[in-house]
């Protein structure tokens, strides 16, 4: 059953009582919350995702709940619990849905050592995938959102999940986390897209989530072959450029920014070696989304730069 098959009221009721079993890529999360903003955003932004039943194995048991006592009324807060533990301090209640997204990332990134998990976005076309690792503030999510609205399939906005063994990328199509100026940029660039409510003054500034395309969600069992690793950087008024990048330095960057490279030990090294060896690595500077999309639609399949 899809989330959209439940009315918002039914969904909210189920989320509050028994909780929902939500399938995102290879993971099933059991989620409970009585917070209306969590129910509203989940129902809206995950409407194409599959709901499983309580008979299914859940990888993570998550609850988001309001602080009790005085905090129920004075500067209300939201808490996150994972398998009954509360690993983080509460956040303002208005940040309940961003907290859900961040903590689900945390659950996946820290409890899934059957995969190599990179801190990167990933998109796919014709079976070939681009991994987009980059520090925050470089325009990675904006580019990922732009490409996913122009024919590229969203695999993930934050976590590139590589299956050890065949090193295929597994889809984890979830809402794209947009920050600050990117929110209005994407509202204009993709007027038909669905956006959740904006949360202001979070640790990352203003945050809003863009719903992944239905196609990305439906094809959530369809893996992709990593073919390019591209470090994007938005630079206003700069000419577009795609330049080859050192593979060894890409290895080190990807390893340092992977969530579990060290935990995987030798397997992690071998997996990363395979990944870097089989991908073309580039730095990419852009200032215009349409130009960026055009460039991505003609990415070189050999270590060359197209004119």
């Amino acid at each position: 059953m899809k989330v959209s098959e439940l009315s918002p009221a039914e969904f909210s009721k189920r989320l509050k009582r028994r909780g929902i079993y939500l399938k995102t890529g290879p993971f099933i999360s059991h989620i409970r919350s009585s917070i209306p903003a969590v129910a509203r955003n989940l129902s809206l932004l995950y409407s194409d995702h599959q709901l499983m039943t309580s008979e299914d194995f859940a990888d993570f048991h998550i609850e988001l709940f309001r602080s009790r006592g005085l905090r129920r009324w004075y500067r209300p807060q939201v808490n996150f619990s994972f398998d009954g533990h509360i690993p983080f301090k509460p956040l303002p209640l208005a940040q309940a849905f961003p907290m859900f997204e961040w903590t689900l990332n945390w659950c996946i990134a820290n409890h899934s050592n059957q995969y190599l998990i990179l801190h990167a976005a990933a998109i796919e076309k014709d079976g070939l995938a681009v991994i987009l690792p980059a520090p925050p503030g470089t325009g990675k999510s904006t580019l990922c959102a732009g490409l996913s609205s122009r024919g590229w399939r969203l695999l993930s906005d934050e976590l590139a999940i590589l299956r050890l063994g065949d090193m295929k990328l597994l889809p984890l199509a979830r809402p794209i986390n947009l920050k600050n100026d990117s929110i209005d940029i994407m509202r204009q660039y993709t007027p038909d897209a669905t956006f959740g409510q904006t949360s202001h003054d979070t640790a990352k500034g203003d945050v809003a989530h863009m719903k992944p395309s239905t196609d990305s969600v439906i094809r959530s069992d369809e893996t992709a072959t990593p073919t390019w690793i591209i470090f994007p950087k938005y630079v206003a008024n700069e000419n577009i450029s795609l330049t080859l990048r050192s593979k060894a330095q890409t290895f080190i960057y990807a390893a340092e920014n992977a969530f579990n490279y060290s935990a995987l030990g030798l397997k992690g090294f071998q997996a990363m070696e395979h990944l870097i060896d089989s991908c073309h690595c580039y730095d990419f500077i852009y200032s215009d989304l349409d130009q960026a999309v055009e460039q991505f639609n003609s990415l070189p399949l050999s270590e060359e730069i197209t004119p």
Binding site: S246, A248, F251, I252, L266, F269, I276
Partner: peptide, 13 residues
Amino acid sequence: LLWHTWDDESVVY
């Protein structure tokens, strides 16, 4: 030590 060399740079584990 496990190596992989690309051009004039290597990573070693």
